[in-house]
Design a binder for these strands. Structure first.
Lengths: 225, 225
DNA sequence: CACCATCGCAACTCCGAGTTGCGTTATGGT
DNA sequence: ACCATAACGCAACTCGGAGTTGCGATGGTG
């Protein structure tokens, strides 16, 4: 029942899993198994990715037999989905520093921090896999993105009230432009991301928004007269 | 030896494959097999994705036996790599309309067209899979992106010479900002993309560049004084 | 300390990757 | 037209991972 050869960050994931497991039912030794298996799943996800993730390997890493895994989850997908859903929740704070510059920069930086954290890398491993064809997993991803969009709205609203941005600025468009370069570098171009990446994204997004290029129903680039 | 139940777009892929197969060696019936198998591979990639791609299925779709596939390619990965490398080449023209607006918009639009074409969707299916862990496939993807970066440079250079953009504008940063929202919507957020998406990206990128937010070694968003 | 849910274990089935030996067909040179 | 040979078809394998099943062992709870 002991998690073998797991780094500190994964143990940390295990702890993160333990707190919100508000499932009703007989909480015997079963809960320890659940935490151990899900933590092992995330660790395997980071180490080997989704395709190479073996139920047998996960079970061994969790110090549990393969059969036990199949008794608590229907199949491999279910384990992964369960491991991920416990992870996508309250991850990012909505900044309110008083200026758009600082708010956007903090938003971008916190995304970078999350994506490069163990949890983020586990999610990343799944995004970069055929697992997105699994509806439940695509739903997890969709909720994550929608959550980001929602969190940006108050930031944009406050900025407009302060007169820092045009009144017609589209919050969704703005956040998409803010986080797209970060996701692009990480998931598509396989380029490194750091604080500077976040800062440049914030700077560029702010410039575009101030110029009115992110306004609602904005016309396309004007044709030459 | 006949390609069965393949849509027109895939047949078109087969034609695209046929022209540049400048491989030396005995060109007997073997060449027909190669084209059929690679076309079938792309079709399967689009239909089922990389993880669910079966060599047996590919062989049947190509009207060929499984062993034949294994005689010409070492394994499943090699087939996919071969099918993709023949595809990433000369896909996009470098626009030179006379204005940055039109050039950037055309660049973005042509990317959208390519990504939503059969070839682009096949590549997309591989990007969204554990196949990116295969070095050769990651290399294909890297070359594709680098190719885009290279093509943007003259566009930016000409714009600077015309005085439309700041002299310090970073071409790579500019193109990244241009194509990131498109790739983000498609590969990460699973949102639809169309011409309007391309136009908005071009508009926003242009605004940011004009404001100097995409200059080389640009400082981060200025802290409050 | 006894009960019962839970777990470990071994032995399965199923399916796809990749291999091997041999018989069969098509292609190019004469 | 004919034949040598390279390429293909076919069946029968091995190997490993996804799930499943029956039974015996174990640990938490009253």
């Amino acid at each position: 029942m002991v998690i073998v050869s797991v780094s500190d960050e994964i143990t940390q994931l295990g702890v993160a899993l333990e707190r919100d497991s508000g499932r009703a039912g007989p909480v015997g030794r079963g809960e320890k198994v659940r935490v151990a298996v899900l933590a092992a799943t995330l660790a395997e996800l980071i180490d080997r990715g989704y395709a190479a993730l073996t139920v047998d390997q996960v079970a061994q890493r969790a110090g549990v037999h393969k059969t036990t895994v199949y008794r608590r989850w229907t199949d491999r997908q279910a384990v992964v989905v369960d491991a991920l859903t416990d992870l996508v929740g309250g991850s990012i704070q909505i900044p309110d520093s008083g200026t758009v510059e600082d708010d956007l920069r903090e938003l971008a930086r916190s995304l970078v921090r999350w994506l490069t954290s163990p949890a983020g890398r586990a999610v990343h491993a799944v995004i970069q896999s055929d697992a997105v064809r699994v509806p439940e997993i695509a739903e997890v991803q969709r909720r994550f993105i929608q959550d980001r969009y929602r969190r940006a709205e108050p930031v944009v609203r406050r900025a407009i009230e302060r007169g820092e941005l045009p009144a017609e600025t589209d919050p969704t468009d703005l956040l998409r432009m803010l986080i797209a370069p970060i996701h692009f570098r990480l998931h598509v171009a396989a380029e490194p991301v750091d604080e500077a990446t976040a800062d440049r994204a914030a700077r560029a997004t702010l410039a575009a928004a101030r110029a009115g290029a992110l306004n609602r129903q904005a016309a396309t680039v004007s044709d030459r007269p």
